[in-house]
Design a protein around this nucleic acid. Structure first.
Length: 764
DNA sequence: GTTCTAGAAC
DNA sequence: GTTCTAGAAC
């Protein structure tokens, strides 16, 4: 037990009566706390409960005061069992201590609001008679006006409990408090909240359910080892909690801006868990057998340097075991140096399951790679390559071939990678550290002069890599990838031959039609088929795919309302007035319920082509043409409003029959965008970028579908800064002003299309 | 795909 | 009481 302000060591061992003021919302467990302690304590306790003090019914505060006074005068210890959430309520009980030789304690049952509410709602025979649905409203209102107690109010000791484990520990502490014992004075279980700023931060953190675990051990957490599990507990269900109270969130947003000083484009984030976060394993200390003490020094020093430069970013050192030596060493140094534990903390868990198992959102994770950047081996490297799927391997191969010690390489993770979809990881940064293991390459023979230098370099490169992601300049090794990325962002506003210019010099060209006039395309259709499909025209395969297609069509029954596009595609002349363009192969029309300022559909006219699942290699030419027609309209729209940004793609499982390409501006400014499904259908993997679809159909003969319903009910995240929002109205109000650059993933491969030089905050 | 609406959430 | 979601019907 490491405690602070232990000023009782020299005091005579003579127990004083204790007045314990329980502080907590209904459902936080105040009564249970008192009862549990009284059951096993050797002290004489009296529980003064306002809910029952009037002959079993609710009484007044005055009754409580007098009842407490007389008990204390008898030398008994007292629990004040009422909410006591604001300072004023507490002050009168604190005054009771005035003439008496007693200790005044607060025990704060600061449990998640959700938990209190569910308990309040569930309980039936509770003395306070706060039952049913009204409980939620009451609990919320109370928590909104909550003021956490401070020593300066007159308490000798305050114990904060933020989870049930903390509560259990506190019950033990008070249960074992014999008649002759005193408890040390001070604040326990939470940072001292002496300044307004800290109160603000603590309130903010509590609401957003950030790991309070991050609080330094020096603040007197009685059991330092309980830190990390709390991390996990508190990060889960943040959406549920943050949605509990509007005013809370508004208030806390302010708090963050003014007091935490969050800077830059991410200042408008609701949840601190959305701060760009890099999780990294300790480099070189496992298989490479680097000295742990030295490594810990270097980690802390390099982290400090990074955090000096980047205020709005988090670093998390991850290891698998609670017993991890390197974690304890680093933890000790964090405490020693009084580092900001919101920005740098340790986490016990699997680096490939930080979100799904630990509730910790990390945009980037570091991989302790080998020099060949190959999967396998063991440890973190094997785990990350395994978890990320083959996508990481090929993405890595595209970026860089090998790595020398002291270097790092940033690899954007394809959105199809499970690490991306499940964990929200957008980048893997491979790092290679110094090797002190004679069995491994580049053995340094215990030369720690060199070793430390290389390890420093490794962390510097790692954090530089992370910084480059923050700036949305993925540091791509020289060569085609970077050119591709840059090129594909530029779309000349001139109206002719856009796609040709657009993709010139990139490897996209070969996959795409060089023209978008329907006449010409039709002419070369046969040629392309002959050239492009040398293998798939064997009889067997044709039958098979035909069969597949029919099977699919049969299984998907289209409702009557889903036929509109199909009717238009089959008989466009009947709908002439509603259409923007008609050709032999496609029809272009405004989406009847546009989900953004500009939202058009490029509709295929091919019969039997109902959705992306029906697309085969023979449709590649059509896909190319649809894309080009889409780009042509994008160009037109950009010439009218150069600030727009467009994305072209297909819904994995469309609601309307007949293959259609969405061309949609990324403002999502539309009253027709009304629900989660609307948002997620354009902003999760459910939306398949046209460029990716073409690539996949070209290489695999079919498009990958992400038609899991889970995608459509995912939490609402801003498509720019990825911050989470509790509901559609609030998401919309956020995106109306979010200026963050788009995630790196979207900036690649021409997924986003905008006018040259726009927007300014994007990749140059 | 939308509209309607009950009831959950605030 | 009002806002918001989500499921059913179309």
């Amino acid at each position: 037990m490491d405690m602070m302000d232990v000023d009782e060591t020299s005091a005579p061992r003579e127990g004083k009566p204790v007045l314990v003021i329980l502080v907590g919302a209904p459902g936080s467990g105040k009564s249970t706390f008192g009862e549990d302690v009284m059951r096993s304590s050797t002290r004489h306790w009296v529980r003064v409960c306002q809910d029952t003090i009037g002959n079993g019914k609710a009484g007044t505060k005055a009754q409580c005061l007098s009842s407490a006074t007389s008990a204390l005068k008898d030398g008994k210890s007292v629990f004040i069992d009422r909410c006591n959430l604001d300072r004023e309520q507490r002050s009168e009980f604190i005054k009771l201590g005035g003439g008496l030789q007693i200790d005044i304690h607060a025990v704060v049952l600061d449990l998640p609001a959700k938990l209190c509410i569910s308990r309040s709602v569930k309980r039936t025979g509770h003395e306070g008679n706060l039952q049913g649905g009204r409980a939620a409203a009451v609990v919320n209102r109370m928590l909104q006006h909550k003021e956490l107690p401070k020593l300066s109010e007159g308490f000798n000791r305050i114990t904060f409990c933020q989870n049930e484990n903390d509560v259990k520990n506190a019950i033990n502490t008070y249960s074992s408090l014999g008649p002759l014992d005193n408890l040390p004075h001070g604040c326990f279980g939470q940072k001292n909240t002496d300044s307004k700023i800290q109160v603000g931060i603590m309130k903010f953190l509590k609401r957003a359910e950030v790991p309070l675990a991050a609080a330094p051990t020096t603040s007197g957490t009685e059991e330092p080892t309980s830190q990390t599990p709390r991390n996990n507990l508190y990060c889960k269900d943040k959406e549920a909690l943050s949605s509990i109270s509007d005013t809370d969130n508004l208030e806390t947003k302010e708090v963050e801006r003014q007091e935490v000083g969050s800077a830059g484009s991410h200042a408008n984030q609701v949840c601190p868990d959305d701060i760009p976060t890099l999780a990294f394993p300790s480099i070189s200390t496992s298989d490479f057998q680097f000295n742990l003490e030295k490594a810990a020094d270097i980690i802390v020093e390099q982290v400090a340097e990074f955090l000096n430069k980047f205020r709005n970013a988090r670093l998390v050192l991850v290891d698998l075991s609670h017993k991890s030596k390197i974690l304890s060493l680093v933890k000790a140094r964090i405490a020693e140096k009084n580092m900001d534990t919101q920005k740098f903390f340790t986490h016990v868990g699997d680096i490939t399951h930080l979100y799904s198992r630990g509730g910790l959102r990390c945009n980037a994770i570091a991989n302790a790679a080998n020099w060949r950047l190959k999967p396998g081996g063991g440890g973190v490297n094997a785990a990350i390559f395994n978890a990320a799927g083959p996508e990481l391997e090929s993405a890595t191969k595209d970026k860089v071939k090998s790595l020398s010690p002291g270097n790092a390489a940033v690899v954007p993770l394809p959105s199809s990678s499970p690490l991306f979809t499940r964990e929200g990881v957008t980048h893997v940064i491979h790092v290679l550290g110094p090797n002190m293991n004679p069995q491994r390459p580049n053995y340094l023979n215990n030369d720690y002069n060199k070793g430390c230098k290389i390890l420093q370099d490794a962390y510097t490169s790692l954090f530089d890599g992370f910084a480059s992601i923050l700036r949305n300049h993925p540091r791509i090794p020289e060569g085609k990838s970077e050119k591709l990325e840059r090129k594909s962002l530029e779309l000349p506003v001139q109206s002719d031959c856009s796609s040709r210019k657009y993709f010139t010099g990139t490897d996209q060209k070969s996959k795409r039609s060089d023209d978008h006039g329907s006449e010409k395309s039709k002419k070369c259709k046969g040629t392309q088929d002959d050239l492009g499909l040398p293998f798939t025209d064997s009889k067997g395969e044709k039958v098979d795919s035909e069969h597949r297609r029919i099977e699919r069509s049969r299984s998907k029954a289209w409702g009557s309302w889903a036929q509109a596009l199909h009717q238009i595609a089959m008989h466009p002349e009947k709908h002439k007035g509603d259409l923007l363009e008609i050709s032999d192969d496609v029809v272009v029309l405004n989406d009847i319920y546009p989900k953004a300022q500009k939202h058009v559909l490029v509709l295929a006219r091919t019969g039997g082509l109902d959705c992306l699942a029906d697309v085969q290699k023979k449709h590649l030419q059509l896909l190319n043409m649809m894309h080009d027609v889409g780009l042509k309209w994008v160009e037109k729209f950009l010439s009218e409003n150069a600030s727009l940004v467009f994305r072209l793609g297909y819904h994995s499982a469309p609601s309307m029959r007949q293959l259609h390409l969405h061309v949609i501006s990324q403002d999502f400014e539309s009253t027709q965008l009304k629900n989660k499904k609307h948002w997620n259908s354009f902003n999760t993997a459910f939306f398949r970028d046209s460029v990716d679809v073409m690539d996949e159909v070209s290489s695999d003969g079919k498009a990958t579908l992400k038609d899991d319903d889970k995608l459509l009910s995912m939490e609402l995240r801003c498509h720019r800064c990825r911050s989470a929002h509790p509901n559609i109205p609030r998401l919309k109000s956020h995106i109306s002003s979010c200026q963050s650059p788009f995630p790196a993933y979207l900036l690649q491969n021409g997924r986003l299309v905008h006018a040259p030089g726009e927007p300014r905050n994007s990749v140059q």
